[in-house]
Every structure is written in C-alpha cells, then in structure tokens.
Design a protein around this nucleic acid. Sequence first.
DNA 1: TTTTTCATATACGCTTTGTATGTGAATGTA
DNA 2: TACATTCACATACAAAGCGTATATGAAAAA
Lengths: 199, 199
Amino acid sequence: MAKTRAEKMEETRIKLIAAGRKAFAEKGFASASMDELTAGAGLTRGALYHNFGDKRGLMAAVVDQIDTEMATAAQKAGQAAGGGWKGLMAEGAAYIKLALQPEVQRIVLLDGPAVLGDPSQWPSQNRCLQATIVTLGELAEKDAIKPVDIEAIARLLNGAALNSALWVAASDDPHMTFRKAVTAFECLASGVLKTPQTD
Amino acid sequence: MAKTRAEKMEETRIKLIAAGRKAFAEKGFASASMDELTAGAGLTRGALYHNFGDKRGLMAAVVDQIDTEMATAAQKAGQAAGGGWKGLMAEGAAYIKLALQPEVQRIVLLDGPAVLGDPSQWPSQNRCLQATIVTLGELAEKDAIKPVDIEAIARLLNGAALNSALWVAASDDPHMTFRKAVTAFECLASGVLKTPQTD
DNA sequence: TTTTTCATATACGCTTTGTATGTGAATGTA
DNA sequence: TACATTCACATACAAAGCGTATATGAAAAA
C-alpha cells in the first residue's frame, strides 16, 4: 500500500522529535547540532525547518512531549492514591521522581526555561497546573483547606516539586535525599490544611 | 599617579561584568554577542577570554554578582523584620520582590540554570541557602518547628519563592499577584510550624 | 637600560544557523 | 491516462559568532 503524503509527514515529525529529544538530552540545547541531529534520523535540516520553523520550534515540540508524559503519569499516580489530599501528595512525589531522569532535568528543567521562557506559560505545564487547581478546588469545597488563592498554592507546590528534583539528582545519596524531599514537600503542603494531618 | 597593572585589570573585569550583565539582561545569553558586548565597554574579546576563559565564565561572574546582591538584600530584610520566623517570611517576600526585576528573571532564573546548571549548586545561592538553614536551625532549637530535614525545607522554600516570581512578573496585575504569592508562600511555610500561627 | 612578563588586541579557521533555491514524488484535473 | 500543480524535503549559500593562535606594547623586574 502506498503511504499518503500526510502520513509520511507525520512519520518525519515523529522521527525528528525523537532525534531532537535524544540530542537535547545528551548534549544540551545549545550544543546540539541540527545537521547532526537530522542526519541521525536519516533526514536533513530541510525537513526540520519545514516542519518546525527553527531550532526553537523543535525544542517546543520536544518539551511538550516530555511534559505531557509527566503530567499524565503524575495524574495517574494521584488517582491511584485515591484522589483528594492523598492524591495531591502522590502527584507531588510522582513529579519529583519523574524529574530525576537526566533527560527531564536537562530538557525541561534547565534548557526549557531559557529557550521557551517561563514554564508556567507552557501549554503542557498549564494542563498539569489545571489538574492541581481542580483537586485543590474540590478540597476547598469540602472546607478542608484554608481560604487562600488556589492558583497561587498550586503554582508554588509545582515549582517546589520540580526544584527539589534538581537537588535530589545532584545529591550523593539520591535515595535518601528523595525521601527527605518528599517529606519536606508534604510538610509544607500541610500548611494549607485547616486541620493538622498526622499521617 | 600611574595605575598599577593589577588595578587596571580589576577595572576591566568590572567593566566587562557590567557590560555582560547589561547584554545578557537585554538580549539573553544566547543572543548576546561577545564582540558587541566588549566593544561597548571599549575593549575587545581578547580581554574577555583572558579574564574569564569563555562566554560561560563571564556569565558565571555576572550571575554571582546579581545573586550575591540578592542574598544580601534578602538577609537585610530578614534582620529588619526582627529575625526568627518573621524574618524568614520577610526574606521570602524580599526574594520574590527582587526576582521581579527583568534582569534577574532573564539572567538568574531563565538563562542561569541552562548555562551553569542546577542553581542550588552555585556558590552564591548556597550562601543564601545557608542563611536560611541557620535561621531554621535556631527555630528548631527553640522547638518551634516540626522535626523535618532543615536543608530540604530551606531548598523547597527558596525554590518556591523564586518560581513564584516568574508567575508574578507574567501576570496581568503584578501588584495583586504579588500579594497572592506572598500569602501562599507564608501559608505553605506555616506547614513546618508546630503551633499554628495566626498572623 | 635591557630584558621579561603579561594584559589586551588582532587575525584566522571552524562550526552552526537560517534562507533561498532546486527537485521529484504525490495529488488533482481534463 | 496524460498533464499540471503542489509541496515535503534536499541542496546550496551567505552571515554570524565562538574560541584559539599570534602579535604588540606597556608595566615590572633585573
């Protein structure tokens, strides 16, 4: 069967994003050569500039892919924990764990902001933020949390989780540090609860 | 009087850091041209490479300068608030306010991590972190906070403060958003207190 | 005074990006 | 089926910027 043009184009987009993801993760955005990267995918820069406009355009696509994967995984963890407050804490822990991957660190946490600007303005991060806001909203309806601005809390919690991942990754004993980070995260988060949580 | 060689060299270092700070703030690290930057300071790239090794070296010097200024200002705010818990909260608010400057956003929050790596490993940030850790340690001795890892709390608080600044700066109503951010910061921070704080 | 050192300038090569143009296969039409 | 057109991708080109190797001239040393 002959492949339609749109199908082929979709294939090259996928190939380029995969190659970009690999190159950006291994060499960092600035040091990744578009020539090398596209050649590795059996293509040339022509395909890249046609599909993504420029180097930054490819970066945006790569970041969106990774970030979406993260948001999905975190939400899943939250649901597995039964939603509500426990779900929120599980989401936070999941985020920290995901951000331990070198790929995520290099692309999403370090290079992403420099290339694409404030992460909280990215479409993908916004999706994740919205999920957190919804959960916090439910808790607010149940009168379980203090009357503070929910969006602000959600943003600070997200930021704290992502930040702590860099710390964990750089530590000598990542396993131990991870536990410390999660505990601290839950400790801070408990500040929004009306009634002290013991477990 | 004739200037000694060391004095002159110190002058060029200062000139280059100032020019770099300006260029990095206005154009971003990647788009800042070393040729242009040094010419603006009445020098050439020769001086730059001799003094700082490479573009990254200059960036490190610039970041260190800004970051040190921030740490000093934040500590001052903390002391003015009388130290202790109130001082800690004042430090946090000061950090958020300082990070509202476009210069700080572009250089320290966005480009810095991409060029220099995890901020919590920078000498300057470490100084600030140490100060927070000391204050938290004093509170721990007074048995005022929960028995959690102090370094972890300090790191998360710092991260949350810096992150929220990006949000505030990008908002339509920075003044209002700033208040929300500070309130949320204090709300989360209160999670480490043993006894609920009312004011 | 001469010799040496060294902070800065000059000159060069290499890499990389973005664009402008070319090409051939898929799509539409008579 | 034959022809025209589109368009995804490749090729060719020009410009900019980084880092290094070399040159220079003024302090510092002898």
